[in-house]
Design a protein around this nucleic acid. Structure first.
Length: 768
DNA sequence: TGGCCGACTTAGGAAGGTACCC
DNA sequence: GGGTACCTTCCTAAGTCGGCCA
């Protein structure tokens, strides 16, 4: 499989069927140092590229960095400047994080809780409801829309021509002026919660994609919800469960004990063996200790959490052993919480919330070599939470005796609640479920942008090829980077703050140490070898032959640079995206990933699907097409723990089925002989019965074999990510319709809910 | 104009639920 | 009915990108 699609050179991670995916993870030993563990991965032997040439990331990463002198003195100054800036940033961030703790009261005094909504809302034009028709707002226009997707420019279209638009407009006008709206909505809400089934049907019937959308940048007119569910308060351990320091039992204060339990719960996890994790944990734990505890507990190595760990294990075991009734009770309670807090009313529709709980306190689990792993993620209190809802809604009540940090009414954003977390100082949000209108519309729009790229991708490719020859270094760099983004589906690669997160890169942030140039390699010319850690510290390893001009350019970019210097020193994502924006409205680096993923799926499905194939064979083809995309996008997963065993079990089943089949065939042969001799009805019937039996076993055997192939090929590849985020669902829907494959075989319930719009609108002739 | 930050998407792993087998 | 394997859902980290402000 070449991974060819359209332009014929998008390069799936050198090879197919997962053989080239390097997943350097050993779950039991060192999950996070995925890149290090080369020896342990037996599967690696299958991989095309030789590991002997791999560099060890862990040792070389910024080794002796301080000592290195840059050839370019300007770069020296630049770095110094950066360092200063980093210090400043660090300071600001710390202040910010600190302020999230100290600020709430002050902010409220400063008028954070206000009656007036932000300016954006105030200025909301009363008479202009800001709708524009959905790209496809009635069935008749379906194909028309597909063909005219280039005209799908939400911002520019503004119309109110169908009855539905009028009706909805009227409803929203009422929302703003009619005092009765609240009871109205309440009734709807109540009804909804009463009859789960009927509500479900109603929900399923709501085709938001046939309705109008806002053109004024607002996301909603009415928003009502009950706020987030907070983590339950800490329950102290029973007295019999002891913590030991230096071999002696020690009773901890409640705050110290709580943090200790976070560590104790993770005792079996690789994290707790890591120096950084232990160091960060111990530092933060000590902050929670009383002065007496602090003076006594000075060495983490002398702490014994094993009894605590045993206690939690026993609890977990007890949960599993609960009676049906007890489990049912818990289920019902969860359902009650879901019904109460898991939904909101947005513009007259009950919508499912994606995450309605605040994140519980615990120890931060950064991925890869994250410098902050083990730090204490503090408990989120109502005083940390900003609520977002409409002015005319019933505001959520904070838990008794508490206050929200702020209540605002910003309909230019989609979130219902937010808070600032204390590890990175970033904002966390409560948002809607992927099946909601607000997420669905955005998703649909994303694929429309990618389809627009399809129409001008040839021109863009011609342009960047031309730019490889540019006299300006910055343009050459931009063109080569874009070539990689297009060909290899690399991520843009924003700049990151050094020391704040794991050392990962994307295209624009690639460093010299991440590429190796081979003028000749394995009978191929101009081979570029990539080896770096991408998002989530997943290793990207690929060797690809490139065009001579790209190769020569890369040689030029590497000249006089140190391993830790930027490969594209005249480029960043901002510059690149600004350029892309000029080439096509709405084009960013990310769109190439969506485009190339979707076009690859479409092309692979065309190539692999055979009309005569059985349904399982067709599904295998689909999964293979999906897999090609996952490989292209480097979506990896850790092989399931039980992989080898489950493969063995499956093979046993296949062997048994094969024996069964040969036995059945023998019986059929005998029956045929019998019939030949007797020519009677009874023997004829017997032949039929035996024939059917053989057929049945054959089918079953084939199914098992397909399953085995699929599973083997899927060992280290995650299909879900691309299916959920990169593949235009209409391609899959159309394929299902064309080949008579039930959609349930491709999308599970949740996925069908997310892609309801696509399932409804795509016909079998849909073309991405 | 560049850097910062808010808002959102994308991501893999863990936990939970369920189907299937013995 | 219990055990197990797999699938689904939940969780939250880690990206992208655009707008704002100094």
């Amino acid at each position: 499989m070449s991974g060819d699609h359209g332009h014929g050179d998008t390069q799936v991670n050198s090879g197919s069927k997962g053989s080239d995916i390097h997943k350097h993870k050993d779950k039991h030993k060192d999950k996070e140092h995925r890149h290090r563990d080369h020896k342990k991965d037996k599967e690696r032997e299958k991989f095309k590229h030789s590991n002997s040439e791999h560099k060890e990331y862990s040792d070389k990463k910024h080794k002796d960095k301080e000592k290195l002198k840059y050839i370019n003195s300007g770069s020296d100054k630049h770095r110094e400047k950066h360092k200063e800036k980093d210090k400043d940033k660090e300071k600001r961030k710390e202040e910010k994080i600190k302020s999230t703790h100290d600020r709430p009261k002050k902010e409220k005094e400063n008028g954070y809780v206000r009656d007036t909504s932000p300016a954006g809302i105030k200025s909301e034009p009363e008479e202009d409801n800001g709708f524009y028709p959905s790209p496809q707002h009635n069935k008749n226009s379906k194909r028309e829309y597909d063909d005219k997707e280039c005209e799908y420019k939400p911002k520019k279209v503004k119309a109110e021509h169908d009855k539905k638009a009028q009706k909805r407009k009227h409803e929203y006008e009422e929302d703003e002026v009619d005092e009765d709206i609240k009871p109205k909505i309440k009734t709807k809400y109540k009804k909804a919660t009463e009859g789960k089934k009927s509500k479900k049907e109603e929900e399923e019937k709501w085709k938001w994609w046939e309705e109008e959308r806002y053109t004024d940048g607002s996301k909603w007119r009415f928003l009502e919800h009950k706020g987030p569910v907070f983590a339950p308060p800490y329950e102290p351990l029973p007295d019999k469960v002891k913590f030991y320091y230096d071999g002696k039992p020690m009773k901890l204060s409640a705050p110290a004990e709580e943090v200790a339990t976070f560590f104790a719960k993770m005792l079996d996890h690789e994290y707790t063996t890591k120096d950084i994790f232990r160091k960060n944990f111990f530092k933060d734990w000590r902050k929670e200790m009383t002065s007496e505890e602090k003076s006594k507990i000075t060495d983490l190595n002398k702490c014994d959490f094993s009894e605590m760990n045993d206690y939690f294990k026993a609890q977990s075991e007890a949960r599993k052993q609960m009676s049906k009734e007890e489990k049912q009770k818990i289920k019902e309670e969860n359902e009650r919480l879901l019904q109460e807090y898991g939904f909101c009313i947005m513009d007259n529709h009950k919508e499912r919330i994606g995450n309605f709980r605040t994140e519980p306190p615990g120890l931060f689990r950064g991925r890869g070599d994250h410098p902050k792993m083990g730090m204490l993620k503090r408990r989120i209190r109502p005083e940390d939470v900003i609520i977002n809802c409409s002015k005319d809604s019933k505001q959520p009540k904070p838990p008794p005796g508490t206050k929200w940090k702020e209540v605002r009414h910003d309909n230019k954003v989609t979130w219902l609640a937010s808070w600032t977390e204390n590890i990175q100082g970033s904002i966390k949000y409560i948002m809607l479920n992927p099946s909601s209108r607000i997420k669905g519309e955005k998703d649909w729009q994303k694929y429309e942008t990618a389809r627009r790229l399809k129409k001008c991708v040839d021109r863009i490719r011609a342009q960047y090829r031309e730019d490889w020859k540019s006299k300006e270094m910055r343009i050459r760099q931009r063109a080569v980077a874009l070539y990689f983004i297009d060909k290899l589906a690399l991520r843009a690669g924003n700049e990151k703050e050094e020391g704040e997160t794991a050392d990962t890169v994307g295209c624009c942030s690639l460093r010299v140490e991440h590429v190796n140039l081979h003028p000749k390699m394995d009978d191929q010319e101009y081979v570029v070898e990539f080896d770096f850690l991408g998002k989530d510290s997943i290793r990207y390893y690929n060797k690809i032959p490139v065009e001579k001009r790209v190769f020569k350019n890369l040689q030029l970019f590497l000249e006089n640079k140190q391993p830790e210097d930027d490969l594209f020193d005249r480029l960043n994502t901002c510059i690149l995206n600004k350029h892309l924006q000029e080439l096509m409205d709405g084009l960013t680096a990310k769109v190439f990933r969506t485009y190339n993923a979707s076009i690859t799926l479409q092309q692979q499905l065309k190539e692999l699907s055979c009309p005569d194939d059985s349904i399982p064979a067709k599904i295998l083809s689909y999964n293979r097409a999906n897999r090609a995309v996952a490989i292209l996008c480097n979506h990896q997963r850790a092989p399931p723990k039980t992989f080898e065993k489950s493969m063995q079990n499956l093979q046993t089943k296949i062997d048994e089925k094969q024996n069964q089949l040969s036995a059945a065939r023998k019986q059929l042969k005998a029956a045929k002989a019998d019939h030949k001799a007797s020519h009677d009805e009874k023997s004829k019937k017997a032949v039929e019965v035996k024939r059917k039996a053989v057929q049945r076993i054959e089918e079953h055997l084939m199914k098992l074999q397909m399953q085995a192939t699929d599973r083997e090929e899927n060992k280290q590849i995650a299909l879900g990510t691309s299916k959920l985020n990169y593949l235009d669902p209409r391609i899959s829907v159309a394929w299902c319709k064309k080949w008579g494959v039930p959609i349930e075989k491709i999308y599970n319930k949740t996925q069908r809910e997310k892609f309801a719009w696509a399932i409804d609108m795509a016909e079998k002739d849909y073309e991405f």
